[in-house]
Every structure is written in C-alpha cells, then in structure tokens.
Design a protein around this nucleic acid. Structure first.
Lengths: 135, 135
DNA sequence: CTGATTGCAAATGCTTTGCATACAA
DNA sequence: TTGTATGCAAAGCATTTGCAATCAG
C-alpha cells in the first residue's frame, strides 16, 4: 500500500503514533476517491467488513476525535441522536433528509448579512443545514 | 390565574387533554414575558423549583414532544449531546457559544442564494447556527 | 524502558418504553 | 365507562471512562 507512508507521516506530524489501528482507520477514511459521511458505528462496520479488522469502539472514538481535533475530519451538526462526521474538510454546506438520514454536500451557502456577534465573542464558524423531505 | 383558560383552550384545540401536568408545563413555558431556551432537564427543574410541582420526566418528555409537534415549541439543532428547545417559534437564527452552551436569538439570517434541492425533494426548513467563542 | 495506545467491560447520561394506576370527558 | 395520560422503573443507545495489557520509539 502506497498511501501507508503518507498516513504515517500525517499522523506523526500531528504527534499521533502511527499504530496499526490508526492506519486502518486512515485507510477506511481517506483512501476512497470520494469524501463521505459516517457515524462512529458506520466506520466501525466498514473497518470490520471491508478491511477485515476489528477495532475496539473505544479506539475508534478516540481516533475519530483526535482526527477531528487535527482537522482531518469535520463533525456535522444535524437533528439526530448520534454524531455524524465528514471526510470532506473543506468549507461547505449540506442538505439533510431527516427521514432517511441522508446527507448531501453542497457548495458553501453564503449569507446576505452576517450579524455582529455579541460583545466579547467572535465568530468561529457558521453551520447551514438545509433540511429537505421527499415530496 | 387568567392564562389557565387560554392554555386549556390551546390544548383542547390540539386534541390534548388539559391535565394538571400539562397546564403546569404551559405555565412554565408560556407565562414568562420573554421567550427562552431550555433542555428537558432545565424544564423539569423549573417546574420543580419555581412552580413547586414534581412531574415525572417521562411526562415532561411526552409533553414537550407533543408541544413541538403542535408548533408550540421549536427544537434547536446545535452541537451538544442533549436536545434544546425554544419557546420562540418564530423564524429566527441563533448564536451559539459552545463553551458555555449559551444560545442567543437573532433575526433570521437570509441566504444569498438558496440552492436547488435534489430532485424529488423539497426544502422544509433551513437551520443557521453561528458558532461563537469568547475572545 | 516508558509513556502512548488499545481493548474490554463498566459506567454515564439522555431518552424511550412497558405497564399498572389515575384521570378527563 | 373508556380511552388518554401519568409515573415509575427498566430498558436502550450512543458515548465515555478506568485500568490492565500491549505497543511504538
């Protein structure tokens, strides 16, 4: 695997030891051509079924959070009971179909006017979710 | 209490029986002059401490969901592990300070261009959350 | 070696459910 | 009376934690 060394390097840069588990997780997340959305449970299943490796849930949680902190993943805030993540870390927005929990990336939606934040606070980021439903 | 009959009427209109518990919840939610944000647990505490009544959590959950379904409450989608609700049911947006879990209402933020939804789907509503942090 | 990482199982916290009891109409 | 609502405790889930065993450097 050629990407292996890239992943190792990436991890080391972030002060994360390139363990077998983390490399598998990198493979699952970053080797697909297209970016995608997933829950922790999705990811765990992908690794188990497609990459033939069983990684403890605790480790998957740890790693996903570490990756998020280092900017390799983004969390998507939607009206669900679980956390969704996105391997697309560029600035963009989403359609969300709450019925089938389907997420679709779209170009960033710009606002007409960005309101001034309360005194003493600064804007960190803006989440825009366009909720849709089947007609 | 003068509002009592208004609440009773409102509940009946929605096919909800005006029980003692539901009326207390109405009082907690709709008698304050200002709208506000809350979690189920917040609401439960308010009723217990300020209205001197202990209502089962299950009932509070039931009622809040019934009120949401009938449009008396809105749910706010933010990056937290619990559900937040808003007694302000008008169209508006929010600032959210993730550190202290503080929500602030703002006028609705309009988008420059609303992207076309995927074929066969229609837009239901758009959530805009402006995440802020203390400087 | 030595601290970082893993994995398991237990714990946590929010929310939902089942079901007997109480209540509104 | 009769279906609705309540309340309790138990169950369900997603997520986190504690800690001993394992691994990377």
């Amino acid at each position: 695997m050629n990407n292996l060394n890239i992943y190792k390097e990436k991890l080391r840069e972030s002060g994360l030891r390139p363990t077998r588990q983390r490399l598998k997780i990198c493979e699952a997340l970053f080797s697909p051509k297209e970016t995608f959305h997933f829950t922790i449970n999705d990811l765990s299943k992908i690794i188990e079924e497609k990459l033939d490796e069983k990684i403890s849930l605790a480790t998957v949680y740890n790693t996903v959070h570490a990756f998020k902190k280092n900017g390799y993943l983004k969390e998507i805030v939607i009206a669900t009971d679980k956390s969704y993540f996105d391997t697309n870390t560029g600035t963009h927005s989403h359609f969300f179909d709450i019925k089938n929990k389907e997420l679709i990336d779209i170009n960033q939606v710009d606002l007409k006017d960005i309101p001034n934040p309360p005194t003493g606070k600064k804007i960190k980021n803006i989440d825009v979710i366009i909720n849709v439903e089947s007609e």
